[in-house]
């Protein structure tokens, strides 16, 4: 038996008196990170505080009626954002309607080795690239390429199904539906990326267990894997919804900016974000205050969605 030589225990006590630059760096670094963390919190507080402060006159004047009033009249100084709330929620909902099935489908497709890795990797890469395209580029493409391209199809739908209220207006150059489709493409990468991570982190034993009981691949995916990853998928949808609600530039370019809450998806509409983007330049007084009130509503809306997403995602991680 050989024993290792260790330093005597007294050296532990004396260490504080020695010159130790690493220790100092440690301390400085610690305070630096605390300061940075506090800064981030302060910025958030500052934004919320100023939103509240500037929105206060509008909140005093219009109260909760602001949410249900459809007038936006700078001459008579009467403001309400009902069409914008309607447009924001409807455009996000329509975008989810298209992006969720497609996104979950792509995520399953990318994780269930339907294709050899040589083809899968570029597809996954392209999906990530979709997220990197600036929103103004989507808007430009939408207005000059995409909307004109789908216009004949939408007109056909209008002619054939015009009796359904949702398709009751003849689609013009810009409309809520087209804006929602572009929005769907924009939020697709979020859904794919998070759903894909969720699906690929499922234990392989689940898959084998299902196949071992005589399940087909389709039954394994729909009855075992997707339900097992459901909370992760819901989390991805919530995050995508958060992005869709706040998306500004593309929608301001595509949605038509009409101050009406039409039941038809093919008519021009407006969202809170596009309203702010269009009006901030010449706004002052109560109009400015009303824009801030709208911004506050949008912030609360996205905050709620994000909190919900965090709750769902963390529940998923606990199961793991």
């Amino acid at each position: 038996m050989t024993s290792l030589t260790t330093a005597p225990a007294e050296t532990l006590i004396d260490s504080s008196t020695k010159f130790q630059p690493e220790r100092q760096i440690n301390q400085i670094f610690r305070w630096l990170t605390i300061a940075l963390a506090v800064c981030v919190g302060l910025v958030l507080l500052w934004i919320t505080y100023s939103l509240l402060l500037i929105a206060l006159p509008a909140i005093r004047t219009f109260g909760l009626g602001f949410l249900t009033n459809s007038t936006w009249n700078p001459v008579e100084e009467i403001y309400g954002v009902f069409p914008q709330i309607y447009g924001t929620i409807l455009s996000s909902f329509l975008a989810l309607l298209f992006a969720v099935p497609l996104g979950v489908g792509v995520a399953v497709f990318l994780t269930e080795n339907f294709l050899p890795p040589k083809i899968l990797t570029p597809i996954a890469f392209i999906m990530e690239l979709l997220a990197a395209i600036p929103s103004v580029v989507y808007g430009l493409w939408g207005i000059f390429v995409f909307l004109p391209a789908i216009r004949p199809i939408l007109q056909g739908i209008n002619r054939a199904f015009g009796w359904i209220p949702f398709f009751s207006t003849t689609p013009g150059g810009r409309h809520l539906f087209g804006a929602s489709l572009v929005l769907a493409i924009m939020i697709l990468p979020t859904i794919v990326a998070i759903s894909r991570d969720t699906m690929s982190s499922l234990p392989p034993q689940l898959r084998q267990g299902s196949y071992g009981l005589g399940a087909t691949r389709w039954e394994t995916i729909t009855r075992v894997l997707v339900p097992a990853g459901l909370s992760g998928i819901i989390g991805s949808v919530m995050l995508a919804l958060g992005r869709a609600l706040g998306e500004t530039m593309a929608l301001a370019m595509l949605v038509g900016n009409a101050n009406n809450a039409n039941i038809s998806w093919f008519s021009p509409a407006s969202t809170i974000a596009s309203l702010i983007a269009n009006q901030f330049g010449e706004a002052s007084g109560l109009q400015k205050s009303s824009l801030f009130y709208g911004a506050l509503i949008l912030m609360v809306l996205t905050l709620l969605v994000n909190i919900l997403a965090q709750m769902v995602v963390s529940r998923f991680q606990q199961v793991e």
């Binding site: 071992g212 009981l213 075992v224």
Partner: peptide, 24 residues
């Protein structure tokens, strides 16, 4: 049928775990 080395119940209820194979 097959029983695996590591117990791999589905993240479903006990009832649904047993009913799964019969259902499909």
């Amino acid at each position: 049928g097959m029983v695996f080395q590591k117990a791999n119940p589905f993240p479903k209820s006990i009832y649904e775990n047993v009913a799964f194979g019969a259902r499909i």
